[in-house]
Design a protein around this nucleic acid. Structure first.
Lengths: 212, 212, 212, 212
DNA sequence: AATGAATGAGGCTTCATTCAT
DNA sequence: AATGAATGAAGCCTCATTCAT
């Protein structure tokens, strides 16, 4: 486990004023990261861009790492929230709603959700994944929740599935969806213009999962 | 400049020594990177670890980035070489050799090759992918050759394939193979112990590619 | 401003609270100083430890130096008070009380008083003497009073003394007593367990002072 | 034991040039310390005053503390060297040379040596003792050697001594000599102008030590 | 009287790189 | 070709102090 403490926010803003300060700092961080890249990100520059003193920055973030971590966490949360919105009706408890939907239909929804999630702030997403050292910590941020959702879904349909090893299947599907959408977003954004790419991905997953 | 007379088969001392120096530097870089991580990698430390003066380091590498790039390139070359060894008989020209092999059989060979390639120096591979900023440059290193190989193979079998858009298919397959093997290597090394994971991957790709 | 009528003997709430605040601040300072050392002493940390806002701290102490000075003064006063308690009957005015006591007897009392004074808060005493920069100011705190007491005593007995230069003698005796007791307290606390060390000190001073 | 490593010089200068650099740095440190005091001592200012880049400073001293420590050590060594020069003929092995000298004569030599040692660089000595935090480390520098010398001498003459507990006597004498001379040097430099102060000190020690 | 958010000068230190020897 | 001393811009961060609320 990495030295979490140092990456943890320093104090909870109690007054309204400080909430604005924190937001200004995070906005400035995002701006510099997306416009100038990680190696232009200095705490002094963030403070300046935020219109805040460097001291204020350090009142809320113990160090530079914490700043980036907070941003990554916030970004991951936004992605997950949007994904969840797109996945409504897919949650385990509501069997009736999805009982009559085919696996490819559900996969379609999952892929749509993943695409939507990756569209939150692609520029930031890219920088976060390409330029930040020590991303081990952040890697996990979005991963876990997706896996849980997927595991629940696959477990429910296990009798209709070709693969037998649930954990392995979860890993394969989650990584495939994420890698392809992330890769397309970053390296071939034009692929996402038409629905063809998504169709192809859904086709592959369906062909793999559905028992013939 | 005339070539050395055949009576002096030994290489020029200069070149020999230089070669040793460069190798020492790259070894030291690898060592620090894998044992201590990218943020411990300083040019002075590399020189010290290599038993070479900092001045000598700069005689062979114009800057720190070049050092890491050379290492990444070297690593990528090793991966590709190993992959090629595993892919012998699959090259386009030798149609006869593979004509009678099924697509799943060929996919199996490709996956094996990718696994072998990723086993070259996993620790270094991980660091190179997780800790180096500006990985855009390196990303391309291994990618291109794999894609070419794959494109040639898929083109040859296009009549047996389900997907119609070749470029898209190449992208999907290449990314899937790489993401899953890389991800397993890094995050779930135990998955590679048994053949089950590879089987699953081959199953998915086959289900996707083969026309029913 | 008129004094409070006798019908309201209780102190003004304001003063009471202020007093408590000041005490909390000084306690916190002592605590941090003895437990963590001078370089961990920051005004913000003192305020936090005291359960008081940083603003309040600055209401009572104009700056950090004043904080430490107040503490040092307080400590010095406590030392002097305790010393005076042990020196009762030695004061100049009461000649009759001590007239029939030998010089070694009086020296014994002085040494006892000094030891008692140094036992007030040895941890704090040590920190105050070892870690505070600019101790010139504080140095004088305990010194002056001791010297006065000693000068009066020695002047009274000047006819029984070997040394002729009073000022010099005062200096020699005061420094010797203080240095040895302070040094023992700090570096050889075990020496103070038995009475041997004190005996030795008294023996030296007696041998020096008493005319043979 | 305090974190020695960090206070230890960083590398041995191998070339002549670097020796000069180190000396310039130490000179500058001394100068700032004596002329401006410890709280004006910043590493950047030292470098500037030394006519050296800040980088060079950090090539030889890992941190600010090490800088001061090196200076203190150097100063202590100079003091001890000078003291030893004044104590020639007093060393244990050369019994014949001192056999016929009285204890007061030897004490006189010791006191002279201590005075000479303290005269090395009084301004620096003062600052080192008054303004440097964490002086625990430095305290010991001069102390140990003096104690050894004294112990050897007193052991040799034990049959002529009044006090019986050798260790205690060593402590008492060493501290007394040091405290008085140091105190005089710092607070009453005029006392050292005439020989009276030294006489008095010798008188006290003689009266204490010599068996009657 | 109290609060605590905000300030910002300035300290320490690193490290890629140069260049005289 | 090699050495390693020297450079210095620039980064991170602390902390005494102020002041609006």
């Amino acid at each position: 486990m990495p030295r979490q403490p140092s990456a943890t926010p320093r104090k909870q803003p109690k007054q309204e004023r400080s909430q604005a300060t924190v937001e200004a700092i995070l906005s400035a961080t995002t701006h510099i990261l997306t416009e100038n890249g990680y190696d232009q990100l200095t705490t002094n520059r963030v403070a300046e861009q935020a219109g805040v003193s460097i001291g204020s920055l350090y009142q809320y973030f113990p160090n530079k790492e914490a700043l980036v971590f907070a941003l990554a966490e916030h970004h991951a949360n936004e992605m997950v929230q949007l994904a969840q919105y797109h996945l409504e009706g897919l949650s385990v408890g509501e069997a009736s709603l999805q009982a009559n939907r085919t696996i490819p239909e559900v996969l379609r929804q999952i892929v749509k959700a993943a695409v939507a999630a990756h569209a939150v702030n692609p520029k930031l997403h890219r920088v976060l994944h390409e330029q930040i050292p020590h991303r081990e910590v952040m890697q996990r941020l979005d991963e876990a929740k997706m896996e849980n959702l997927l595991r629940a879904f696959l477990a429910q349909r296990s009798d209709q599935l070709q693969p037998k090893n649930l954990e392995l299947t979860v890993f394969v599907v989650e990584r495939t969806v994420r890698a392809l959408i992330h890769g397309a977003m970053i390296d071939r954004p034009e692929l996402l213009k038409t629905g063809e790419f998504e169709q192809e991905l859904i086709a592959m997953l369906s062909a793999y999962l559905v028992k013939k």
